[in-house]
Amino acid sequence: MGFKLLSKLLVYLTASIMAIASPLAFSVDSSGEYPTVSEIPVGEVRLYQIADGVWSHIATQSFDGAVYPSNGLIVRDGDELLLIDTAWGAKNTAALLAEIEKQIGLPVTRAVSTHFHDDRVGGVDVLRAAGVATYASPSTRRLAEVEGNEIPTHSLEGLSSSGDAVRFGPVELFYPGAAHSTDNLIVYVPSASVLYGGCAIYELSRTSAGNVADADLAEWPTSIERIQQHYPEAQFVIPGHGLPGGLDLLKHTTNVVKAHTNRSVVE
């Protein structure tokens, strides 16, 4: 069995187990497998329904001669939608809004960016022009300005110390501490036991640490421990890039980060 097929099978099995364990909360999309990078042309966006009122959005972007996937989250909030992270750029984010209108038909009224990198804030200006209120932590807003990236308009308070959590509509926002970046936030959907790890969490097929220019490698494993301790009931975990899975993604990420750190020390 090929690795790609095995990865998709694991996603399907995880979703099936969740649907059985929580039949009222989960209505997993039966329309197909989780979209992969090879299936999404740059400039297009796919939506994948995880649970009743919960979707991931998947886009792709060219970077350094390669094409990478990027995940975000959409959560229903009454007759409105909360968006977590842009679709990595203005063109993708405009396509995301169009796809949401086509498939869901509810307005996106608020959006949260989970850290300051372009795959999370690139497209904020498109959201703002569409009347979406954009939010991020003060740290993310400051770092985005320093980096020359787009800056969300509103500040999220109460997320300055490791372990801080605040309720934001249908989700809980959690600051686990520094990891992929010093400002990275985690998003949890309690009604569906869905954990969105953003770039602080890796997919299972990833074996290298990737972009760690703004990471705190020493603190990252401790931050992941905080996530595990705060959300032990999480059933569906979405990484910032690639295929979702279960809580095993947290341990896998820790292993990859520690291996990278150990290699760096040896070198």
Results as ranks from 00 to 15, higher is better:
residue 35 P to W: 11
residue 154 H to L: 04
residue 200 A to L: 11
residue 168 F to V: 12
residue 117 H to Q: 01
residue 210 G to K: 10
residue 8 K to S: 12
residue 181 S to R: 01
residue 136 A to F: 03
residue 233 E to G: 07
residue 12 Y to K: 05
residue 157 E to Y: 15
residue 102 K to N: 06
residue 9 L to K: 06
residue 140 T to K: 03
residue 1 M to Q: 03
residue 54 V to T: 10
residue 76 R to F: 06
residue 204 L to G: 10
residue 143 L to C: 05
residue 46 R to C: 07
residue 55 W to S: 01
residue 166 V to I: 06
residue 233 E to T: 08
residue 142 R to W: 07
residue 24 L to R: 06
residue 198 G to A: 06
residue 111 A to F: 13
residue 43 G to W: 09
residue 216 D to I: 15
residue 179 A to M: 15
residue 88 W to H: 00
residue 195 L to T: 02
residue 37 V to C: 09
residue 94 A to T: 13
residue 210 G to C: 04
residue 194 V to H: 01
residue 267 E to G: 11
residue 17 I to K: 05
residue 60 T to F: 06
residue 51 A to Y: 15
residue 83 L to A: 15
residue 267 E to R: 10
residue 141 R to G: 07
residue 101 E to V: 14
residue 149 N to D: 05
residue 191 S to Q: 07
residue 260 H to V: 11
residue 174 F to L: 11
residue 152 P to Q: 03
residue 249 L to N: 15
residue 203 E to T: 04
residue 52 D to P: 05
residue 51 A to M: 04
residue 64 D to P: 11
residue 9 L to P: 12
residue 40 I to F: 12
residue 72 G to D: 02
residue 74 I to M: 06
residue 185 L to H: 00
residue 217 L to G: 12
residue 32 G to E: 07
residue 165 A to R: 13
residue 144 A to C: 11
residue 224 I to C: 03
residue 88 W to M: 01
residue 111 A to R: 02
residue 190 P to S: 04
residue 262 N to C: 14
residue 21 A to H: 04
residue 257 V to Q: 10
residue 245 G to S: 09
residue 81 L to P: 02
residue 46 R to H: 04
residue 77 D to S: 06
residue 201 I to D: 03
residue 118 D to K: 11
residue 194 V to E: 00
residue 185 L to K: 01
residue 36 T to G: 07
residue 110 R to I: 08
residue 45 V to P: 11
residue 181 S to C: 01
residue 141 R to Y: 04
residue 119 D to H: 01
residue 18 M to N: 04
residue 67 V to T: 07
residue 134 T to C: 14
residue 12 Y to W: 11
residue 253 T to A: 02
residue 173 L to K: 00
residue 209 A to E: 09
residue 97 L to F: 04
residue 177 G to K: 01
residue 84 I to M: 07
residue 212 V to W: 05
residue 12 Y to I: 04
residue 84 I to P: 01
residue 64 D to A: 07
residue 67 V to R: 08
residue 227 I to V: 09
residue 232 P to W: 11
residue 238 I to Y: 14
residue 56 S to G: 06
residue 152 P to H: 05
residue 159 L to D: 02
residue 234 A to S: 13
residue 66 A to R: 06
residue 252 H to R: 08
residue 9 L to W: 09
residue 72 G to V: 00
residue 264 S to P: 13
residue 252 H to E: 13
residue 6 L to V: 08
residue 99 E to G: 14
residue 76 R to G: 09
residue 9 L to I: 11
residue 69 P to K: 07
residue 72 G to K: 01
residue 238 I to C: 10
residue 170 P to S: 13
residue 240 G to H: 04
residue 173 L to G: 01
residue 178 A to L: 11
residue 12 Y to A: 09
residue 42 V to C: 07
residue 260 H to G: 11
residue 240 G to Y: 00
residue 231 Y to L: 13
residue 110 R to T: 11
residue 247 L to Y: 12
residue 161 S to F: 15
residue 195 L to R: 00
residue 247 L to C: 15
residue 159 L to M: 12
residue 78 G to A: 06
residue 179 A to Q: 00
residue 33 E to Q: 05
residue 39 E to S: 08
residue 217 L to T: 05
residue 70 S to W: 00
residue 232 P to Y: 12
residue 127 L to D: 03
residue 166 V to N: 15
residue 2 G to F: 12
residue 235 Q to R: 11
residue 100 I to Q: 03
residue 59 A to S: 07
residue 113 S to P: 03
residue 257 V to N: 04
residue 197 G to M: 02
residue 25 A to Q: 06
residue 146 V to H: 14
residue 119 D to T: 00
residue 170 P to N: 12
residue 164 D to I: 15
residue 40 I to H: 10
residue 24 L to P: 04
residue 136 A to H: 03
residue 76 R to L: 05
residue 8 K to W: 12
residue 139 S to K: 06
residue 92 N to V: 04
residue 20 I to D: 04
residue 60 T to P: 06
residue 178 A to I: 06
residue 191 S to L: 13
residue 90 A to F: 15
residue 37 V to P: 07
residue 222 T to W: 11
residue 57 H to F: 12
residue 241 H to T: 00
residue 106 L to R: 11
residue 73 L to I: 11
residue 147 E to G: 10
residue 126 V to D: 04
residue 69 P to S: 05
residue 124 V to K: 03
residue 113 S to K: 03
residue 175 Y to N: 06
residue 93 T to K: 00
residue 177 G to M: 00
residue 27 S to L: 07
residue 264 S to H: 15
residue 226 R to K: 04
residue 173 L to P: 03
